[in-house]
Write a protein that binds this DNA or RNA. Structure first.
Lengths: 233, 233
DNA sequence: ACTAAAATGTGTTTTTTAACACTATTTTTA
DNA sequence: TAAAAATAGTGTTAAAAAACACATTTTAGT
């Protein structure tokens, strides 16, 4: 099995994946009834206003979900890691998309179209509960985020974003470099601040020995201090 | 049938209520297997940190869902109207509550306990889809709200909150008075601003003829202008 | 009805952060 | 590989909104 095939396979079998909740029969059905899409860095998966077509499951890569707000300023509202779900919120709410999804690195996606998805939910209550669990977790994240983005000061917001990126994508082998590479602008859009302030505050953290920077690489040097900044503001 | 009984009955039959998706048999089951709770203004339904016990359906009244943030400043993240669901997000995410729910006026709630709820979902995929639809709608609201609360300026945020209250609770018989009475502090907590600024900005809107104020009564005098303030900032 | 407490309202000061203007560096691409 | 474009970085100014300090009014409890 090639590397690509192995990754693809895990999307159907990993217990982290929603698809692992399918019956053998359903699993088989989906294997023969889905679309597989490949995206390069900066490619658009869907955009604000589009009609949702189905459930997107990220097999490999990283995706940002954001909404354009006042004066072309984007707010990143979610970040997707492998086995994460996308494009289903609008579908289930019977709305058009209110956010856009863009690959931040090369990504592979499995798409299950609306009709098939509803069939799976109808047949399999465990699968339905998996969807419910995912939406509930997302809603919790969004509500927590609303509070911190509105109430914490710049340093607290940035520290929290760095911790969020660590929790979502983890470290590289060295156990301290964030396993995700974002532009300063994306970091700003995640943290509700201007790009200038993201740059400035990252530099301040580096100066204080909390993190260290080298291009887009961010290393957490003092996790405790970072937590404190995130919590205390 | 008394007024109370009629309200209660509608919760099981109104097509706006999730319970209308139940089969006759299930409907009957729930009628005999639920708790009915009554709350006075300012009573706590559940609070941040509590273990979720079941699905709360608001039969009558109004409830605010909020989270205490930095320095005891609350952020209201949802407002519930009759037939609205509460307390189910944490339950489905297998978490403790991350928000608190407090009645803003006398309220009646129907509680379906976790076991029964899971049984209903297992048996009835339409009901499951109803839950999914509700979570998806809430998530959309939360994501939109995150963007406006972080990006709009005070006037835009307050205007949007007033429109939100109108959309949620509607007008009184006069067709222009908001059918909900909030303290200035609650309005501030809904709009991410200090109480002083909520008071000041409400006065400014009244001065400009956009709204008129009389105690906790808010009348929309110029909906078009209000929309413009909300949209343009 | 009377008092204490809570909520509302207003002016001033201070803090935070965006906006702006620009340089330097890195990355694309022609 | 040189030019152009995009990204990163820095200092300064301006705007927005919080914090603070009170006065006034309304509400709740005895």
């Amino acid at each position: 099995m090639s590397v690509i095939e192995a990754i693809y396979e895990k999307c159907f079998t990993s217990e982290d994946s929603l698809l692992s909740l399918l019956t053998n029969e359903q699993n088989d059905y989906v294997r023969h009834n889905h679309t597989s899409l490949h995206y390069k860095k900066n490619d658009v998966l869907y955009k604000d206003g589009d009609v949702p077509t189905g459930l997107f499951i990220l097999a490999e890569g990283k995706v940002k979900i954001f909404r354009e707000g006042v004066g072309h300023r984007d707010q990143i509202v979610r970040m997707i890691k492998p086995y994460g779900l996308m494009g289903y919120r609008a579908l289930f709410a019977n709305e058009t998309h209110i956010t856009s999804a863009v690959a931040i690195e090369e990504s592979t996606v499995i798409v299950i179209k609306k009709g098939d998805l509803l069939k799976l939910i109808h047949e399999n209550s465990k699968f339905a509960l998996g969807i419910i669990n995912s939406l509930a977790a997302n809603l919790g994240f969004s509500e927590l985020r609303t509070v911190t983005l509105t109430q914490k000061h710049i340093r607290g917001r940035l520290a929290e974003s760095i911790i969020f990126l660590k929790d979502t994508y983890g470290y590289e082998k060295d156990n301290c470099t964030l396993n995700v590479y974002l532009s300063r602008e994306d970091i700003a859009n995640l943290s509700n601040m201007t790009t200038s302030n993201a740059i400035r505050t990252l530099s301040a953290f580096a100066e204080e020995g909390v993190i260290s920077l080298s291009g887009k690489k961010i290393r957490i040097e003092n996790a405790e201090k970072l937590n404190k900044i995130s919590t205390m503001g």
